[in-house]
Computed example of a mutant assay.
Amino acid sequence: MENIEVHKVGEVLDASTSKMEQEAITQILGQGKNVALDLSGCKYVSSAGLRVMLYSYKVAAMDGLKLFLIGVSEEVREVMAITGFERFFSFYQTIDECINQPG
C-alpha cells in the first residue's frame, strides 16, 4: 500500500504517553497519509491508550485514511477483544506485511 507512514509506539501507551502519541499520529494523518502503528515494542496499553487508537481511527476514517496495527502483543490484543476495539482495526505481524498489502 502506498502513502503509509509507520509510527513506532513506545513500551507503554497510557495516560503519561497518550497526548504525545496522539499528536504524532494526528500530524501524520494531517499530511494525508495512512498510519501503521508499530506496537511490537509496546507491552501495556491502558484505557487512555485505547482512546488514542480509537480517536486516531475515527480521524483517519473521516479523511478517507486508514490506521493499521502492527505487532500487537497477545495481552494487548486480548484487551482489545474484550473491549470490542478489535473490530475497528486491521492487524499485521510485521511492517513489511502491512506495507506490501494490496490496495
Rank of each mutant, 00 (worst) to 15 (best):
D96Y: 04
Q101R: 11
L69M: 09
R77K: 15
L37N: 00
I95N: 08
T26Y: 13
K33Y: 13
V76G: 08
L65H: 04
E21F: 11
I28D: 00
E2M: 05
I28H: 02
L39Q: 11
Q27H: 15
S40D: 00
L50W: 10
S46D: 12
Q101K: 10
L65F: 01
G49C: 12
V6H: 02
R87H: 03
I99W: 14
I70Q: 00
C98N: 01
T83W: 01
L54N: 07
V72C: 11
I99L: 13
F91W: 01
Y44M: 08
E23M: 14
P102I: 01
A48M: 00
E78M: 14
V59Y: 04
E97W: 08
T26N: 12
L29V: 13
I4P: 09
C42S: 08
E11L: 07
K19E: 10
S73T: 13
E74N: 14
L67A: 03
R77M: 08
S90A: 05
R51D: 13
A60Y: 00
G49Y: 14
A24W: 02
G49A: 12
S90E: 04
F91N: 02
K66F: 04
I70K: 01
Q101E: 14
V52G: 08
L69K: 00
Y44L: 03
E5D: 15
V9Y: 00
E74F: 12
S40A: 00
E97V: 05
L54D: 03
R77T: 05
Y92R: 04
Q31C: 06
V35E: 08
M20A: 13
G30P: 12
G32I: 12
L39G: 10
I25W: 01
Q22G: 08
L54G: 11
E78R: 15
R87F: 08
F91A: 02
G30D: 14
M20Y: 07
S40C: 09
R87A: 04
Q101L: 04
G41Q: 00
L65M: 01
E78H: 15
Q27C: 08
E74Q: 14
A81I: 04
V79M: 12
G41M: 00
Q101I: 06
F68Y: 03
L69D: 06
I99Y: 08
Q27V: 12
K43Y: 00
Y57K: 05
Y92H: 06
V45L: 01
G49D: 02
E11Y: 08
T94I: 03
A15S: 07
Y44K: 05
Y57E: 05
L65A: 02
R87E: 10
V79E: 12
E75M: 11
Q93F: 01
E5C: 13
K33S: 14
A36K: 09
